[in-house]
Amino acid sequence: MLELRDIQTYYGAIQALKNVSLKIGEGEIVTLIGANGAGKSTTLMSICGVTPPRRGDILFRGEPIHRRSAEDIVRLGICQVPEGRHIFPQMSVLENLEMGAYLRRDADGIKRDIAEAFERFPILGRRRNQAGGTLSGGEQQMLAISRALLSRPSLLLLDEPSLGLAPLIIKQIFEIIKQINVENGTTVFLVEQNANQALKIAHRGYVMENGAITLEDRADALLSNEDVKRAYLGI
């Protein structure tokens, strides 16, 4: 569904990604794990057209998208939940959700999807008129995921959804991600430092170090890989 071929992304003169290649199949949950500063977030921003790669190709359903605008990429069905949630702080919960549907024109469909989001996360429904910036971290993450789903993505990119959340909330968030994948058939590309949790729900995984992919395998194989265990699982 999505394929990155030798992409190289720079911030000015600094090269953040050195030949990253990976593949994500339809319906999969694929995770990208790695340390701070390895280039995981840059990989997602490159896919989304926010920091387009200087070299290399990104193919979505076989079509090159690395020259397309961020707007076009959302329209094609790729949506990202960025690290740190990025809730619009002065907009209400409801308005945040509406912004997720910015490119859609089907008012009825949007209304249905918002109702569905409130069903999935009742707390958001109770706070629909509250400013997004006043929500707790966990609530913001629920809102960020719901907002992304409002664009009806076929590929959902998640950047560190567990960051800064309590263990119980983390568990709930990962369950929801799994549920979105199974019930909606949404393909998920999950970037995580919490490698243990991520590999438990993923089908496959990639390991990234210093801007390059160093390892790829089935998730269960990575979970029992000695190097991965030592470096990322803390075992």
Binding site: V50, V74, H86, M91, L103
Partner: peptide, 16 residues
Amino acid sequence: RATQQDMIMARLVGIN
């Protein structure tokens, strides 16, 4: 308003 509050996120929801 979205662009004013968070320009990167505005781009990620497809705002030009």
